[in-house]
Design a protein around this nucleic acid. Structure first.
Lengths: 337, 337
DNA sequence: CTGTTAGCGCTTTCAC
DNA sequence: GTGAAAGCGCTAACAG
């Protein structure tokens, strides 16, 4: 067992030649003797020589790392996304540095600062819920670190991003329900501050209007996503006179709580009240009472695209030209036939 | 907007002083003039100067990164684990480089090689299912990279690891069922090659024997974890004469398939056949027919411990002294009261 | 064909 | 109180 970590210098010392000769031998440079090359390459394998990327950075100006900052890795949506991102990165010879903001601005700033310290070649960020100051995203330009926003996009100009078209998903949801004869369709939306909520709302309105149905404010309620708040919203929806026969719900997790509550009220799911939701989590397949359809947001696909966009930025001369990509959501039917 | 990324050299140039003076000013070194210090620090803030960790590596011999290699980030168990790992790393001023092996040895080797290339200060690995050659773990010693194995431990000597005590969990499961009057208890285990399967088996045997019950080979079947294989195993268990009244299942995912099959056979879950399982996934709360109990393996706690052990190794003089920690599993009851 | 050298960003020892 | 210089691992331009 050698005491020192294998370096070009160490190989050179052991072989009694110069470091540059070793470097050339390892890269099959033409101007190197066959014997020397062989000796070097064999010793390199024996010592398990792996070049030091940290040192290469000075030469190439690249760390061959990209940073990914997400709110929570424990959430299925984000873990699937980062999983695909890593695949794309690996295929491009890159390694992923990852950080969780836990939806906290200070932590997000801290993590991005760490990424900058490590001089990542690029960055993908899904902005924390409570981030209201976007200055540290601008600061990345000083270090020429290209940035792609993912799923949660801040209100900034000239940025690159990948997100999902939720408006379309909401429209599909409404259209499905109308085609099944529903005219009183409720919307159990998320917090009004989220773009995700606004998009659902827009799609909901658009689809209703395209069928000459007037959106009824009474049929739209918001949940702050916890059980109590969801139950209250459902309670209000059920109390509306001429109550809805179908409800479009913010996502499958909220739907779980809503469905539980509706069942407790002795109403039959998808008979008395038909449910359509968002996220299309795998759990739905195993539930007895689950939404008849859920809008798939393709976290894997989105993650893949985000990383691909980042590499486009990395390879482009003109990095200031923002790239944007919108993944179409798709309504997935879950009815057991 | 400055053209060049902020460096100490750049600050020195702009201020007309030497780089070393800037370095001292930034570190509040005593031998620096108050005026110079102030000028430097102000300009550093203005330029958003962030030191280059890559350059610091040469001085400190540390990259301030740790590598984490897991089979799949899309799996709840692993995403929860890496989530906690990152928290601990962040608290120690470290950033996590992550890689997925996708349960493939070649990819695992590749990812670990990338980590080595980046000269991570330490590594946590959950070994891929099909890894049979462990040489590349030994190679890490050349680079003095301490290694902690997580959850999936290879058959090597003198290694550091964190894992969960599944034998205890299996014992608890059997004991619960016996206390409920069951004597014919089946075991639907995973592939025999996995340590995880062996541990369940051991616990199962131990608990039965401590109640003077003889393990019946017919009551033990293995699934390779896919639906088809699980169904076959359940089918065989149900075909045993004097068939089991309870089954302990490898994990909750396998249990989902098994339960579906049992229901199709018109047997009532937890009445005709009582189910106990492992993993304790959150989905269980929302299912109508779910195991009456599931063994919680605390992925977050385990991940935390693994990272803590790694930092102990990093800070110890004697890194060759392996550290090991076993998290106790806990049987969680799920009955609706 | 091979060795020497400079330089990437930063810290630190040594001069002044 | 400040500058100059060396060195960490590696590559490439240059000299021989």
């Amino acid at each position: 067992m050698p005491e020192k970590a294998p370096t070009i210098k160490e190989i050179a010392r052991l072989l009694g030649i110069s470091p540059s000769a070793v470097s050339r031998a390892l890269h099959d440079h033409p101007s190197i003797g066959a014997k020397t090359r062989k000796r070097v390459q064999e010793l390199a394998i024996e010592l398990n020589y792996i070049p030091n990327q940290t040192a290469l950075y000075f030469k190439e100006g690249k760390t061959k790392t990209v940073g990914v900052v997400l709110p929570y890795l424990g959430e299925e949506f984000f873990s699937k996304a980062i999983s695909s991102m890593e695949d794309v990165a690996l295929n491009n010879g890159y390694t992923v540095l990852m950080g969780q903001s836990r939806d906290n601005m200070e932590r997000e700033r801290l993590v991005i600062s760490a990424m900058t310290k490590h001089r990542v070649d690029g960055l993908i960020v899904s902005v924390a819920k409570d981030t209201h100051d976007f200055a540290y995203f601008e600061d990345l330009r000083h270090y020429h670190i290209p940035l792609v926003f993912f799923d949660r996009i801040p209100p900034m100009n000239g940025i690159s991003f990948v997100r999902c078209n939720l408006k379309k998903g909401a429209e599909d949801a409404v259209n499905l329900l109308i085609s099944r004869g529903h005219t009183r369709i409720g919307l159990l939306n998320g917090p009004g501050v989220l773009t995700a909520s606004l998009e659902r709302q827009e799609g909901y309105n658009t689809a209703l209007e395209s069928h000459q149905l007037k959106p009824d404010k009474e049929l739209i309620k918001c949940s702050s996503l916890d059980s109590a708040s969801t139950e209250l919203a459902v309670k209000e929806l059920l109390a509306v006179k001429d109550r809805p026969t179908a409800i479009i719900i913010f996502n499958d997790y909220v739907a779980l709580d809503a469905i539980q509550y509706i069942k407790n009220r002795n109403l039959v799911i998808n008979k008395d009240i038909t449910i359509v939701s968002f996220a299309n989590i795998s759990m739905n397949h195993y539930l007895n009472d689950s939404p008849i359809a859920s809008v798939e947001q393709f976290p894997g696909k989105q993650g893949e695209k985000a990383m691909e966009l980042l590499f486009e930025l990395l390879n482009n001369k003109n990095r200031d030209q923002p790239l944007q990509y919108i993944v179409n959501s798709r309504l997935v039917l879950h009815e057991k036939i």
